[in-house]
Structures are given as C-alpha cells and as structure tokens.
Amino acid sequence: MLRALTAAAAAAIAIVGVAFAAAEAEHPQDYPFSFDSPVGNYDMAAVQRGFQVYNQVCAACHAMEHLSYRHLGEEGGPFALYRVRDHETGEMTMQIGKPEHGGTFVDVVDNPYVRAIAEEAIISDIDPNSGQLTDRPGRISDRFRQPFPNEIAARASNGGAYPVDLSVITAARHGGADYIRSLLMGYSGEVNGTLYENRYFPGGWLAMPAPLGEGVVAYNDPEVPQTVEQYATDVAYFLQWASDPHMEERKRMGIVVLAFLVVLAGLMYLAYKQVWRGESH
C-alpha cells in the first residue's frame, strides 16, 4: 500500500512533464549543448561568438531589454575579466574567462572589453543640459540598445510583425536553445508574401526572413567555421546564457548542497536508528 502511494506520487510528478509537451511543428533537433547535463557549464567561447552574432545580426530588430552591457562582464558572464598571476614570471596578467585555477575576478567597472562593447552602441538619452533627446556612446550600466523606441515603431518597421524581446527567449519557448538553433537553420527558402517557411515554427510560416547566411559575421578565430549552423549554435548558446545567467553558479551550488544533504540525511538516519533502538514500532 505504502509503496503504491509512493509510486503514485512519483507518477504525479511525471505527468506534469507529459502535460506540457504539446507541439505541432517539427520537433527541434537535439543538439548536445555543453550546458545540457546537470553539471554542464557554458562553452564561453561559443557564448562570446553568440553575442557577436546577436550584436551584428539579431540586434538590428530584436531588443534584450532585461540585459545590460555590464551583465556581459559580471561573474558568470562571457566577458568576465580575471587577474591571473603567471607562475614563472610572477607577473599579473588579465584574462577573459575564468582560469583553471586561481585568478581574482575584476569588477566589471574596470573591464575594458565590456566598456568597449558598451561604447560601440549608440544610446538615445536625455541630454542633461538641454533636456532634449540626444545620442551618446553607451555605458556599461546601459541596457542593451533597443532597436526601436516602442512596439508600434517596431511593428511599423517590420511589416506589422513584432520582433520579440530575446532576454528570456530560451525559457519562453518549448525546446529552449534547441528550438532557437533549429529555427535559425530551418528555413526552406519558400516565401509567401511576407512570410517565410520554416519547418520548426508552429504553423510553418513566420514573418522573420532567414537572418543568417554563410560568412555574414566574421569570427576572430579562424578555426571556427563561419556557417549558418555554427552561427545558429553560437547564438543559441548566447541566448541560453542570457536567459539563465546564473546557471553555472546554480549547478555548482546545487552539487555542494546535495552532497551536504546526503551526508546529513545519513547522519540523521543513524541518529534516528539510535533513538529508536530498543523501542518497538
């Protein structure tokens, strides 16, 4: 009886997964992202390239209103800066990305890379002296530049379709990063008026033309192919990071917490047995 109830409770949890798995479009391709496993981290090189793709391609239409430039350089961000001591020379060097061991995190305020990224963006702001709208170079505390001042302007520039905000897009879509990656690779080339056929999009036709093409973004690393597939994968990495920037910290902490709890459960069980020994129940 008890076992049956326990099984029933387990089944109740399993049901939830089933209940939300409705989709009409083709199922996204399952790509082995580095963050898939319970202990998997982000491939930060891919997240960096993905930011480049976003910045040079997607950002023309899609805002990410919940992200600021400083997020890129905070701990767990793709451009986080670390101060590392060289073992042999003892010299301090700066390095992007968390080193294997050691290294102290440099506050994002002192991160020249992020500052440079922010300054490249032209931000619309109120001039402090004239009170009029003016353009100025971005600061790290600025939100990512919004391509359109409001939704009406965004629709007007995109034939009535609204380019969605991408801040939490992988969390907001069934299939997450797999869906984003598949969607970007799923164009058949068929056009119907202002709609483009895409086999991964619910309904099959979407208003966004295929945004990526061979070589549209020039990567610094010559080893990395400049193909649609690579771009799609990288940008999926970046958007996943943007949706869940604390994932690495979360998983790291989770492992420690679970390990601690298992030990504690063991100790508690022994204590329980000890208390109850000699008492029948």
């Binding site: 939830v16 679970l258 204590a271």
Partner: peptide, 28 residues
C-alpha cells in the same frame, strides 16, 4: 528525529528541483 530525517529527504527532492530544474514545474 524521525520527522527531521524525513524532512531532510524532502529537502533533497526540493533542492534537486531548485538547483537543477527550477523551471520544470512551471510553464514556458
């Protein structure tokens, strides 16, 4: 003590969701 032991088992399940699948019970 029995409650404590059981509560810790419950917290293990709780923590598994919190740290490894925080959105599994929600809706996209």
């Amino acid at each position: 003590i029995k409650d404590l032991f059981a509560v810790i088992l419950f917290v293990i399940l709780f923590a598994t969701f919190v740290f490894f699948m925080p959105n599994a019970l929600g809706h996209a």
